[in-house]
Amino acid sequence: MRPPTYLYDLARTARRPARSRRRPRPAEALTPQVQLLMDSMSATPVVAMNGRLDVIGANALGRAVFSIAIESPTRSSSLTPPNFASFVFLDPAAAEFYSDLAEAAATCVQILRTQAGSTPHDKRLTGLIGELSTRSEDFRQMWAAHDVGRHRSGAKTLHHREVGDLELSFEQVRLDSAPSITLSAYLAEPASPTAERLQLLASWASAPTTAH
């Protein structure tokens, strides 16, 4: 059964006057204060995303952990932000990166479906859904299921090409100053192999730009 908030979002949007639907949405960009906050969490990978799963920003360790997604060739241009849904459905490297690709794909679809319920007139979201539907049979079938959901916390196992498996829990934080942007912080158990691998990645990320 779909969560009531999904239906409420659709109903509220349908009742909204046409003029308000055409009102430009505020730009999605990180303030210097938010970037400073993420950078201060140097031992924790942090990624900032919007409801379309665009990567709006990250700290150094976040970029190191998710470099394969952030640098994915699925980006249509240098002006287009990296997008996790495009990476999951269109980049073969996603099958190597996610230990459970099916779960990652289902999560992406649920988040995009929820976002479509709250912002159905978002042209960039419509374009993303259209591209994924055209290029991915898996996405097309999963989108037709009308599954929705929000994922504020949980766990992931990722395979990083340089340091190996990373077993991470995550927590998401909504920004009062930019409600459309969410910070995802990824945490490792202290003294675990994952914590040691994150320390290695952090040392590489903070080092001068040279081959490591």
Rank of each mutant, 00 (worst) to 15 (best):
I68Q: 06
P179H: 06
L168F: 00
H121D: 12
A69T: 00
M142P: 00
K156P: 00
A14G: 09
R16S: 05
R152S: 12
V148R: 02
R16N: 04
F87T: 03
T126K: 11
H212C: 08
A144G: 07
L90G: 04
A60N: 08
R174W: 02
H159M: 10
H146Q: 14
L198K: 03
L10C: 10
S76W: 10
A188M: 06
C108E: 00
E196V: 10
K123P: 05
G57T: 03
A178D: 04
T209F: 08
A105Y: 02
V148W: 01
T209A: 14
G130E: 06
A48V: 03
S77W: 06
R75N: 07
A104C: 11
S184T: 11
S192F: 09
L128C: 03
E196R: 14
H212D: 09
S136L: 04
S42T: 10
F170P: 02
A207W: 04
L101A: 08
R75Q: 14
A202P: 00
L200N: 05
R12V: 12
T182M: 03
A93T: 08
A105W: 00
L200W: 07
A14T: 14
D9W: 05
L79H: 15
L79A: 15
R2N: 12
D165C: 07
S78R: 13
A178N: 11
R161F: 06
P32E: 09
G149P: 01
R161Q: 15
S192C: 05
D9A: 15
S203R: 14
S77T: 12
E28W: 08
S40Y: 00
T44H: 09
Y98V: 05
Q33R: 14
R63I: 04
V148H: 03
S67P: 01
N83H: 05
R25V: 07
Y186M: 02
Q33I: 07
M41L: 14
A64H: 02
M41K: 00
A18G: 05
S76G: 09
R21E: 00
A185C: 13
V65I: 05
L90C: 07
A43C: 08
A202Q: 15
V163T: 06
D54K: 03
T80M: 13
P208G: 09
P120G: 01
S76P: 05
I68W: 00
A95V: 06
A102H: 14
V47R: 01
P45A: 02
I129N: 01
Y6Q: 12
D9M: 09
T80Y: 09
H151R: 14
S40F: 05
R22L: 13
A116E: 05
P190G: 10
A95G: 13
A104S: 08
Q172M: 12
L7Y: 06
D138H: 14
L200K: 13
N59C: 01
S78Q: 14
Q141L: 11
D138C: 12
R135N: 10
V34N: 01
R21P: 00
Y186E: 03
F97I: 07
H212W: 10
T5H: 13
E131F: 06
L79C: 11
R12S: 14
R140M: 09
A64C: 08
P82N: 08
S133Y: 07
P179Q: 11
A145R: 15
R161Y: 07
L37V: 08
S206D: 11
V148P: 01
T210P: 04
M41D: 04
R140V: 02
A155V: 06
P81V: 07
L168N: 02
Q199R: 12
